[in-house]
């Protein structure tokens, strides 16, 4: 697989390590009354879809940036790549 890095251009996927579903960006509020249940779901449960999947890849052998890659789990086709930082900020995170 080739991941089209937003800053570095097309890079081989073997330069990256894989973390998992991009929902891991959305860390629950630890002060919420439902925090225990929220963290259980955050940590352990996954949608695991067959089809388009947004996921976190880390450019370990490159610029060490985190990316959000949109990839089809049935075909391995990658349709979108963004810096995870930009995605997190767009969702209201400070960094």
């Amino acid at each position: 697989m080739i991941i089209n890095h937003p800053l570095l251009g097309p890079r081989d996927a073997s330069e990256f390590t894989y973390l998992g579903d991009a929902s891991l960006i959305d860390r629950p509020d630890w002060q919420s009354e439902t925090a225990a249940q929220d963290f259980y779901e955050y940590q352990y449960l996954r949608d695991n879809p067959a089809g388009l999947h947004q996921e976190l890849w880390f450019h370990e052998s490159g610029d060490r940036s985190w990316l959000v890659v949109t990839r089809n789990t049935l075909t391995h086709e990658i349709t979108d790549v963004q810096l995870a930082r930009d995605v997190a900020r767009a969702r209201g995170r400070s960094k």
Partner: peptide
Amino acid sequence: YNTYAQRGNLP
């Protein structure tokens, strides 16, 4: 990485 493709990659 997540996949349902029943095939892998070369690395």
